[in-house]
Design a protein around this nucleic acid. Structure first.
Length: 555
RNA sequence: GUGCCUGUAGCUCAGCUGGAUAGAGCAUCGGACUUCUAAUCCGAGGGUCAGGGGUUCGAAUCCCUUCAGGCACGCCA
């Protein structure tokens, strides 16, 4: 239990106890204590915590809220908590002001836990798989993939930190129609680059990178494939290898390393897809119509039924995806998280239905839908399309904006936001990028530590008592909040909460920095402040690490 | 037409299971470097939380509805 949780728990217990004593003595009437909240007031003059319980009890107790609040305040025993004083405010809130000490204790804790400060056991070791990016290996990664990569990687770090056991997986779509198109496009380019006439397929991939890939194949194999009947297969295989290698490389340079890469093709070859279809047939969830096999999506969700095997006998992507998720569960995962672009949201309901069909709680599949990224260069929108081959790649993004800025930029926005990414702005005003604000805080602290010449130091509890300035208290409080922020960020699967927290924390530090000298202060003050800034540094670093952003020693 | 996402300051966005006077960055204006890093800080201005109903002690948050934008509705993935 972290510091905040502990204090809240104590106060909660004492509120409950106080009301049951009041009830026993007949001073108040209620059947059952309503679910109340103990929250952190926005306004700091309202104390460290506040509860709304008095307002919630009015009907049952037939008393006005301020009267109820008065009873509570009179009955609560501050000895059992770290409460310094209580007050009744507004319509009937009870505000709790805590003793200074409870917050100061956070500093020795952070100094002791170091890289582990903020780590929790909220996830209880639950096995989680996060599948993200999973882009077609027919081209390079674009901005949407970059967003997914930043999100998925940060989320997995955060959930690991919060006590889950998370694996990251990339699903390789190396089967199906788009691969056929890919093969045909390769074939056409192959002929073309060898000076032969060949029609370019209508739905082909026009990307320049494909031409380059084919040119490399020609450099290696020459024109030996011209008369090879397995020409398309061979071209496809070589090109896929190359594309996949590039994808892997680009992701690594973005700080994203997967635990596993899973091939869709392997699902076809192992027979798992047919097994899955058979399984569904046996459950009477599949029927035939016009030569195709349909899955009864409508039995689970309000969707129309969906084809899982085409009349030509080839299973659809949906069938493969069901088999894939069946496989994920069979590997022992308790929770599956998928990160998809908004253009796939229509797939969510039927996948959840399918999870039910294969015997799993639909809620054990969580799909995070992220809205699309619109790319701008100044005022001009840059259209992204793999088919026409005009798009900015992840690689180019990293080259242009830098890994840290790109990762932070994506991480700090809710997946629900339709985000406009202006490359020119990100480039030209890079010093205004929020990531520098946070990193600068870290660098400044490193600089202070260096100036003291101290490597290791302890902080005595007595010294911490001197931390009374507003800037010091706010910073302390923010640091104490960190484990709770991690927990909430993991619980709601929202990495952007931590990015925003990091920005707030850095802001409080910068204010502190401008108002409170560390070096050159009274020895005791310096000792306490040094403890405070080191705790800040540790916290900042732990967040940046989770977000995949470098925490620089100097800038 | 149906479904999902979005609409909060000039711009980009936060706002946790409903809480007290709606926040931050950028931009604008005015201040602070003989100092542990000015990539910083302090202050000011800037709002019909898209509009309208409802739920209640209390709504940016929940429900209904209208409007606007994005996305999806295939024997594609």
């Amino acid at each position: 239990m972290n510091i905040i949780e502990k204090v809240k728990y104590q106060i909660n217990e004492e509120i409950t106890a106080a009301f049951s004593r009041l009830k026993e003595r007949g001073e108040i009437e209620f059947e059952q204590l309503p679910e109340f909240v103990l929250e952190v007031p926005r306004e700091k003059s309202h104390g460290d915590f506040a509860t709304n319980i008095a307002m919630l009890l009015t009907k049952q107790a037939k008393k006005n809220p301020r009267e109820i609040a008065g009873l509570l305040v009179g009955e609560m025993d501050p000895q059992k908590t770290e409460i310094d004083r209580m007050e009744i405010a507004g319509p009937g809130f009870v505000n709790f002001h805590l003793q200074d000490q409870w917050l100061q204790n956070v500093i020795p804790l952070v100094l002791e836990q170091q890289d582990d400060y903020g780590r929790g056991d909220y996830g209880k070791g639950k096995k989680v798989m996060i599948e993200f990016v999973s882009a077609n290996p027919t081209g390079l990664l674009h901005m949407g993939n970059a967003r997914g990569a930043a999100l998925g990687d940060s989320l997995s770090n955060i959930m690991n930190f919060a006590g889950y056991s998370v694996d990251k997986e990339f699903y390789i779509n190396d089967a199906g129609n788009q691969i056929e198109n890919f093969g045909k496009s390769l074939e056409a380019r192959y002929f073309e680059l060898l000076g032969k006439d060949f029609p370019f397929p209508e739905e082909g991939y026009h990307g320049e990178d494909i031409k380059e890939t084919v040119q490399r194949i020609i450099n290696t194999y020459g024109d030996s494939l011209l008369n090879d009947e397995h020409r398309v297969e061979k071209l496809t295989e070589v090109a896929l290898q190359e594309k996949l290698g590039a994808i892997k490389h680009d992701l690594e340079s973005f700080g994203v390393v997967y635990d596993n890469w899973y091939s869709e093709k392997s699902l076809h070859e192992s027979g798992q897809i047919q097994e899955t279809i058979k399984f569904l047939k046996e459950k009477d969830l599949v029927y035939e119509n016009e030569g195709a096999l349909w899955f009864k999506t409508s039995a689970f969700v309000e969707e129309k039924d969906e084809v899982i095997q085409r009349s030509n006998g080839i299973p659809t992507y949906f069938a493969a995806d069901i088999a894939y998720h069946k496989d994920k569960f069979s590997r022992g995962y308790d929770l599956l998280i998928n990160i998809w672009g908004a253009d796939h949201h229509g797939h969510v309901a039927r996948m959840k239905g399918a999870m039910e069909a294969i015997g799993h709680d639909p809620e054990s599949l969580q799909v995070i839908i992220m809205q699309l990224v619109r790319l701008f260069r100044g005022k001009d929108i840059v259209r992204m399309s793999k088919r026409t081959g005009k798009y900015i790649t992840l690689n180019e993004l990293v080259d242009e904006v830098g890994k840290d800025a790109a990762r932070y930029f994506f991480a700090m926005r809710s997946p629900d936001s339709h985000l406009d990414f202006d490359l020119e702005l990100a480039k030209s005003e890079s010093s205004d990028n929020p990531v520098y604000y946070v990193q600068y805080g870290h660098a400044r602290i490193c600089s202070i530590i260096k100036a003291t010449g101290q490597e290791d130091f302890a902080v005595s509890p007595e010294a911490l008592g001197v931390l009374q300035a507003e800037e010091e208290r706010l910073l302390l409080r923010k640091i104490a909040d960190f484990p709770e922020e991690v927990r909430l960020s993991a619980k709601h699967m929202e990495p952007h909460k931590l990015a925003i927290y990091a920005h707030d924390l850095a802001g409080l530090f910068h204010s502190f920095y401008n108002n409170c000298k560390v070096i050159g202060s009274e020895p005791q003050v310096m000792e306490a402040r040094l403890g405070l800034v080191v705790a800040t540094k540790i916290t900042l670093k732990n967040i940046l690490t989770m977000l995949g952003v470098h925490a620089p020693e100097r800038m």
